[in-house]
Amino acid sequence: MAEFEVEIKPENLVYGTPKLITDRIMHYCPGCSHGTIHKLVAEVIEEMGLAEKTIGVSPVGCSVFAYNYIDIDWVQAAHGRAAAVATAVKRLYPEKMVFTYQGDGDLAAIGTGESIHACNRGENIVVIYINNAIYGMTGGQMAPTTLLGMKTATTPYGRDPKLHGYPYKIADMMAHLDGVCYITRQSVHTPVNVRKAKKALRKAFENAMAGKGLSLVEFVATCNSGWKQSPVASNRWMEENMLPFYPLGDIKDI
């Protein structure tokens, strides 16, 4: 028996599901960062009053089904091509808010060309880039961002630079391009980071609507299934291993 009663009234609510998040059961694994990031994207769109103006581009990978969870118009792009698809949508509907949502395999491996050139053209879009250092959907293979020594399905003895090359920081590369106005690296593994990440997303969306050029928000994220760890251990592993190599914070802001 509770010592005091909680009366549930609308004015007492301090937290709720964003209106734009659908009732569909998410297919993401428990502990995956996608759910939190989806929530932030939905909140930012809602708070900016852009629900009727926003078109999302979903990738190939775990987040291909982002279109099932955020209640806006979506187009699903071929693997890696989201930035090209978004380019056309934004050019043809300049008044709309257009963003892509891509994983590291999609953006930094197969889609490197499209991503870099969209940056270079200064397309007025937002690129949301989820870096969990692994291919989640296909069962945990090496990603371009996989850390040295990290074990994956295709680096069973750990990533060896002689065999597999080096992990690379595509966001840092993109920051050199003149068409890019804002590049930041965020995470959602603590409440503080969630709040910072939301601010970063909002800024990116505002940049796109103001026509300032391309903004990219990278999320260093967990894939506990791919990493074969519990959600809690994944957060710890990310802090200890990912964040030293992929440090959080703004990389470019003009």
Partner: peptide, 23 residues
């Protein structure tokens, strides 16, 4: 709108995006 893309791969995906808009 006329865009010179970085490849045919990009240009057909731009077409895909534009077509998705009913354009």
């Amino acid at each position: 709108v006329v865009v010179q893309a970085e490849s045919e791969v990009a240009s057909i995906n731009m077409v895909y995006g534009g077509a998705a808009c009913g354009k």
